[in-house]
Design a binder for these strands. Structure first.
Lengths: 142, 142
DNA sequence: CCGGTAAATATGCATATGCACTTATCGAGT
DNA sequence: ACTCGATAAGTGCATATGCATATTTACCGG
């Protein structure tokens, strides 16, 4: 008998997650285009807005991202002046990251654009389902 | 008053989707490493296993991916001999894609590895929740 | 047949992703 | 102080992602 993979595309968790992430990211990036932020860059700004100084590794963990990936994702943002980094005085290995004033200002401008994308997203998935859905995504990511 | 973005990381659909996609993809790629397939490559093989000949654009639509992205993702797979492409006899613009015998054989070897990754995934998200979760992801991707 | 518009795909550029490996630093035990 | 294992971060390589733009082909109205 022939191999039948016909159920795999819809069953595969990885495939469905990646496709949804691609499609949703494109919509958020379209919304954020006026401020010139990519989807991942917006996430980094948000993550850094929570704390004054964050070690690179801790930030990568929070984003569920390889340290080496984050290292490179930071570059265009630092070049643009949105982020600053400084060595930890107590541990010279650690690179502490922080938002600049410019980064904070841009985040403020980006916020309503994000809000709009978020609302458009909830036109597709009823917002009441989101807390539950988020929890499932976090379980998958954990 | 200061801007407070403290709710954004957990609320942002885009962020949660991307993070989950990253983490889950890494686990599938680890499982698929013995056959040397990346997560997206496995998805392409599966998608092509459904039909004998698929136009590039139609495949891209099915994957929720830009045609230009797919164009390049195909390259290493064609170079490796997993896929073949030929022009459509009725429309010289169209590139028809198909699995090679080697591609089909590799998919067969990859299948149990995928199955294992899938099962590990369901250790994190109860499988009973998957049909519903999949539907939500498809709504987000649509 | 010709000209113009639409469609399918490819290219240039920039960012994103992570593994294997390397470098620098820390801290504990001697 | 010294060595050594552990930890934080960076590099080289390869694939992934998509927008703006270019190229080729199709099709339709004249």
């Amino acid at each position: 008998m022939l191999d039948d993979f016909s159920n795999v595309p819809s069953d595969c968790v990885m495939f469905n997650l990646r496709r949804a992430a691609r499609m949703v990211s494109r919509r958020y990036e379209e919304a954020l285009r006026p401020v010139g932020l990519r989807a991942g860059q917006f996430s980094i700004l948000i993550a850094l807005s929570q704390q004054p100084q964050v070690p690179l590794g801790a930030l990568a963990d929070g984003l569920g991202m390889e340290r080496t990936t984050l290292t490179r994702n930071l570059r265009p943002m630092i070049r643009r002046g949105l982020l600053a980094d400084s060595p930890d005085r107590n541990d010279a290995r650690v690179r502490l990251l922080s938002l600049t004033d410019e980064g904070r200002a841009l985040l403020k401008r980006a916020s309503p654009l994000w809000q709009k994308a978020q609302e458009e997203t909830f036109d597709r998935l009823p917002e009441a389902l989101w807390p539950d859905t988020r929890q499932r995504l976090q379980a998958l990511a954990g």
